[in-house]
Write a protein that binds this DNA or RNA. Structure first.
Length: 186
DNA sequence: CGTAAGATCTCT
DNA sequence: GAGATCTTACGT
C-alpha cells in the first residue's frame, strides 16, 4: 500500500474553486493491474454547483448527476461524444452538486501517450466509466501531494467548450500552471 | 419511443 | 472544418 501523502476527505470538502487551484501540482495515481500510473495535475476546471449553468448538476439530481451531489473525494467519470471519458473530482459537502474536471496532466511514471486534454488523460491513465463513483481515498485510485512541491504561478481563464452556458461560459473557472507545456490550451 | 446535443479528438 | 459514436434528458 503506497498511498503516501494521499489527500484526506476534508481536502475535497471545501469551496470548489479553492479545491481546483489546490489540485494543481498534485499527483493523480492509478494502480492499474499492478502498474502504478502517476501524473501531475496541470490544468483543471471548476463546476461550482446547481446554479452554474455549465455544470451537469444544473439539471438537478438525476441518475447521472447523483455522484456530483454525493460525498466529496469521489470520482465522477462520464462518457462524452460517445467516445471520450472525462474525469472529475467531487467537491464540497454532500448535497452540493459540485466537482473539478481534470483537463490535463504531466506524465510522472508509467504513462504512455498524450495527456493534454480531458479525454486523453483518461485514456493514458486507464480511466473509464468503471471508475464513476470510485472513492479517491482508496488504495488503487487516489490523489496525493508530491514528495517535493515546486513553486508555480496559476493562470485563470474561462472554461473550454461550454458556450451553451450563457453568461457562465465566461466565468473565470479554469486554472492551469503557468508555462507548463502539457496544458491543453492557452 | 424519437431525437437533439454534448465539459472531445483526429484527420483533412 | 467535419465526422465519429453513444449516453442522457426531455418531449410526445
Amino acid at each position: 500500500m503506497k498511498t503516501r501523502n494521499r489527500l484526506p476527505r476534508k481536502f475535497y470538502a471545501r469551496a470548489t474553486e479553492e479545491v481546483a487551484r489546490d489540485l494543481l501540482g498534485k499527483h493523480l495515481v492509478h494502480v492499474d493491474g499492478g502498474i502504478e500510473r502517476r501524473a501531475r495535475i496541470v490544468e483543471v476546471e471548476a463546476y461550482i454547483g446547481a446554479h452554474d449553468l455549465a455544470s451537469h448538476s444544473s439539471k438537478g439530481v438525476t441518475p447521472r448527476t447523483s455522484i456530483m451531489y454525493g460525498p466529496p473525494g469521489h470520482a465522477y467519470v462520464y462518457l462524452i461524444y460517445g467516445m471520450h471519458h472525462c474525469m472529475n473530482v467531487v467537491t464540497e459537502p454532500e448535497g452540493n452538486g459540485a466537482a473539478v474536471l481534470l483537463r490535463a496532466v504531466e506524465p510522472v511514471a508509467n504513462i504512455e501517450g498524450n495527456t493534454r486534454g480531458p479525454g486523453l488523460l483518461c485514456r493514458a491513465l486507464g480511466i473509464d466509466k468503471r471508475f464513476n463513483g470510485h472513492d479517491l481515498l482508496s488504495e488503487d485510485f487516489y490523489i496525493a501531494a508530491p514528495p517535493r512541491e515546486e513553486a508555480f504561478s496559476i493562470v485563470t481563464r474561462p472554461r473550454i467548450g461550454v458556450a451553451y452556458a450563457g453568461a457562465w461560459a465566461e466565468a473565470p473557472l479554469r486554472f492551469y500552471i503557468e508555462g507548463n507545456g502539457f496544458v491543453s490550451k492557452k
